[in-house]
């Protein structure tokens, strides 16, 4: 009997284990390897890390790709642009999303369920098409320009596309549901009597919000912010569709290095640096946050 259980367990553990080692870990190790290789013409476009010659084993490894990236302000700026885009849009999503989540959670159950469905619909519909919708709206001949001209605010269509404000708008729009839904999840469990109690005890509304509501919805804020911040850091589609050349972002740079310049070692080195600069801080934050929560419990 015990043997049977173990057999099942072995399958349960090792099927996903092997899969993830093979298709997640090995590919990451591979881009690390390529990132310290010397680029050269040919296929694959880099020199093998180890080569045998008359003098024995030779290691063709280099840190040159990393030095190249970090000596060029172009690449460093793209990392900073991505971080600042992720930060700005997370804050904006929180500022816009919090009141919406709060009032949806506070509505009567019958209305609440309908509003919840209305929040989920954009969440489910195609990401790419929602970005495209803004491309249509912001066109020179688009509806926003037409309305502005019609009411006489402007005489000529203004160009609203292809700049980093359009990118921020697109990001906030597409990621807003990712912020609202976890916030709603925590706020709906929240006992409304606590607000009345706080009011009865003489707290001003602002005080009630800062001292009662906000701390209790903190896990929702953290969860929502993570869901926005993490994917936006590597975002490629939105800058490509709505952005221009005024600000370049990390995702697009990797894409271009690989597909346009065909420079595998540089693209790999950019990806590895991206993991260290953009992903590690998130993992460390999550570990610290988990520890903090554990202590508080």
């Amino acid at each position: 009997m015990i043997k049977n259980l173990k057999k099942q367990n072995v399958w349960f553990v090792f099927t996903p284990y092997l899969w993830l080692v093979l298709f997640f870990f090995v590919p990451l190790a591979l881009i690390f390897k390529i990132s310290i290789s010397v680029s050269e013409w040919g296929m694959p476009p880099y020199r093998d890390l180890f080569s045998f010659s008359e003098n024995g084993l030779k290691i063709n490894s280099t840190l040159g790709n990393y030095l190249f990236i970090f000596s060029d302000p172009f690449y460093i700026r793209s990392y900073l642009n991505s971080l600042s885009l992720a930060f700005t849009s997370t804050v904006l999503c929180l500022l816009i999303g919090y009141p919406i989540a709060f009032y949806v959670a506070k509505s009567k159950p019958s209305i609440r369920n309908i509003l919840l469905i209305m929040l989920i619909i954009p969440f489910w519909s195609s990401f790419l098409l929602r970005v495209y919708a803004w491309k249509v709206l912001l066109q020179g001949s688009g509806i926003i320009n037409s309305v502005l001209i019609h009411i006489g605010l402007i005489t000529e269509p203004i160009s609203m596309l292809h700049n980093h404000y359009a990118v921020i708008l697109g990001v906030v729009y597409t990621y807003l549901p990712f912020m609202i839904l976890p916030l709603y999840g925590y706020l709906v469990k929240f006992d409304l009597n606590l607000i009345d109690a706080s009011n009865d005890l003489g707290a001003k509304p602002l005080n009630t919000f800062v001292k009662v509501i906000l701390p209790l919805s903190l896990p929702g804020i953290v969860a929502g912010s993570m869901l926005v911040f993490i994917p936006v850091v590597g975002e490629y589609i939105i800058p490509e569709m709505l952005g221009g050349s005024d600000k370049l972002y990390f995702g697009k740079i990797i894409w271009d290095e690989f597909f346009v310049n065909r420079d595998w070692p540089i693209a790999s080195a950019l990806a590895m640096s991206g993991i260290v600069i953009l992903v590690f801080p998130i993992i460390i934050f999550q570990l610290m946050y988990a520890k903090y929560n554990f202590k508080n419990e």
Binding site: P27, L30, I31, P231
Partner: peptide
Amino acid sequence: FIFLSSSPLVMPEIILGLSLLLFFI
């Protein structure tokens, strides 16, 4: 094992795509 099963969640898709393509090649 925990690292393997949770870090795809925080890995930018562009890095995931690049690493898988280079792996397949």
